[in-house]
Structures are given as C-alpha cells and as structure tokens.
C-alpha cells in the first residue's frame, strides 16, 4: 500500500541549525494496517507524516502509494489519496466558514472543482447523518461557523472530513494531543471506530504509549530519523509501557526522559 524507500530529509543543511530529521528511512505498510508511531521529540515522527503528505520535498528516496510513485507530487495532488488530521485543531478546518461548507469542501477532496454550486441539498442530508454519529449535536448547527466550535469538536469534524471520501491512507499527527483527556479519549474512540469500519490504512503519531499499544495492529518506534522498533500482531498486544521504555534505552543508549510519554 505505502512503501517508503531510503527517504532522507535534512533541514537547514550546511548551517549550525542542521537537523537530520529522516535518515534513510524504510517502511512498508500493508493494506489495512493501523500503525501507531511513537518516539521522543525530534525523532522525525511528524517529519515522516509531512513527507508522506508532501508538505516539504524529500532530499532522496522514493515514496510509493498504492503502486504510484508520489515522491515528486505536490501536496495538493497527493491529497486525492490521503486524508489528514493535524495536531492543532485550528489547522484542519476553515474557521470563518460554516460546518456544512467545510464538509462540502472535504467531500470534493481530490476532485475537480468547477462552477457547480459549492454544496448540494443531497450533500446536506448526508452531512446531517454523518454528523449525527459524532454525537456532538453538530447536526443541528450545520450553518454555524466552525470558529465557534471547541477544539475537540473541531478535531472530530476534521476526522470526519478526512474520511468523508475514503482515503487510501489516513495520516493522524498527534491529533488528540491538544485536547483534554476526556475529549481526547472521545476523539480516539471515534478514530478507532471510523478506521475499523472503513478498514482504513492509517498512520497515527501519538505521545501516549498506552494508546500506542492498545490501538492498531502495528507499532513503530522512531529515534533520530530512523525506525528503531517495529512490532505487530500478538507481540504488540503483549507489550507493556515498561517494555517500550527498555526498548528505547536499548536502541538509543539514552534514558527515555520525556515526561509527556511517561505520563501517558
């Protein structure tokens, strides 16, 4: 499904701020895989997501998605196949536009946009149904501006938008990190539900080790731009947070001193 071969990315090369974000990274993702990605700050998790989404160009290597080489495609071209939810709830939606307008935009992801009216009556019905299942009461506020929603509501909406047209690949970049624990759980449950229901191939960056273990069928740990641990199936289910910490110390030779991850 997704194949990343020897991909490297260095930010600010040749300066004192040089930062090797990805270092000859290889990853093969099977169809239907739900992979959680963990790692310390600066491990390259977000860079990996951004490289796949095409936010920045990669320095070398190739990325295949669904058999197509997308290495040189622009972000908006890849969007046809990729649904995304960002860490910042503000990034996934247009604040000054109505909920239904945002959904209508998402319902045209990767399609040609012409001079047809931006939203059809039939779509409104579909959106009403889809919003109902979020259980947030948004179906009765479809003409409200998204800027009036809370962070959690916006993330749930963004998740719905990202999966409204079934994406070949869903990228979730710490999409619950900015939410309070209860809302985060709700959004995460919803994520699980949608991904399982549509059998979506998903990459999810998280800083919560518990979530990383319990969710999905495969777990990847990154360190300094490389994948240092890759586990799936039964073995993953048996993992404990302490195992992950040990694994990290083993691979990196440092202590895993990251409060955010310990607290998870």
């Amino acid at each position: 499904m997704l194949q990343i071969k020897n991909v490297s990315k260095t930010f600010n090369p040749g300066t004192v701020n040089e930062k090797k974000a990805l270092d000859r990274l290889n990853l093969h993702v099977e169809e239907g895989d739900f992979i959680t990605i963990i790692g310390g700050n600066g491990a390259g998790k977000s860079t990996l997501m951004n490289m796949v989404a095409g936010v920045y160009p990669i320095d070398c290597g190739t990325i295949y998605l669904d058999g197509k080489n997308i290495s040189l495609q622009a972000e908006y071209q890849r969007a046809q196949m990729i649904g995304r939810v960002f860490q910042d709830p503000m990034l996934g939606t247009a604040a000054d536009m109505a909920i239904q307008e945002n959904l209508a935009m998402a319902n045209r992801r990767g399609k040609k946009r012409g001079l047809k009216w931006g939203i059809t009556p039939k779509e409104k019905e579909i959106f009403h149904e889809q919003l109902k299942r979020l259980g947030l009461g948004l179906e009765d506020r479809m003409t409200s501006k998204v800027g009036l929603l809370s962070g959690g509501q916006r993330q749930a909406l963004t998740l719905l938008m990202a999966t409204l047209i079934k994406p070949k690949l869903l990228l979730l970049d710490e999409h619950t990190a900015a939410l309070d624990p209860r809302t985060a759980k709700k959004v995460l449950d919803l994520t699980n539900e949608i991904v399982n229901e549509q059998n979506l191939t998903t990459l999810m960056v998280t800083h919560n080790m518990q979530d990383a273990i319990h969710i999905g069928n495969r777990l990847i740990m990154m360190h300094e731009g490389k994948i240092i641990y890759d586990v799936k199936g039964e073995e993953k289910k048996q993992l404990k947070v302490s195992d992950l910490l040990k694994k990290f110390e083993e691979a990196s030779g440092e202590e895993f001193a990251n409060d955010r991850m310990m607290l998870g």
């Binding site: 969007a79 935009m105 992801r109």
Partner: peptide, 9 residues
C-alpha cells in the same frame, strides 16, 4: 486556512 485547503486537494 491555506493548509487545510491544500490538504483537501
């Protein structure tokens, strides 16, 4: 929100 618009293709 330019970022979102690009992410929506």
């Amino acid at each position: 929100n330019e970022q979102m618009v690009r992410a929506l293709g």
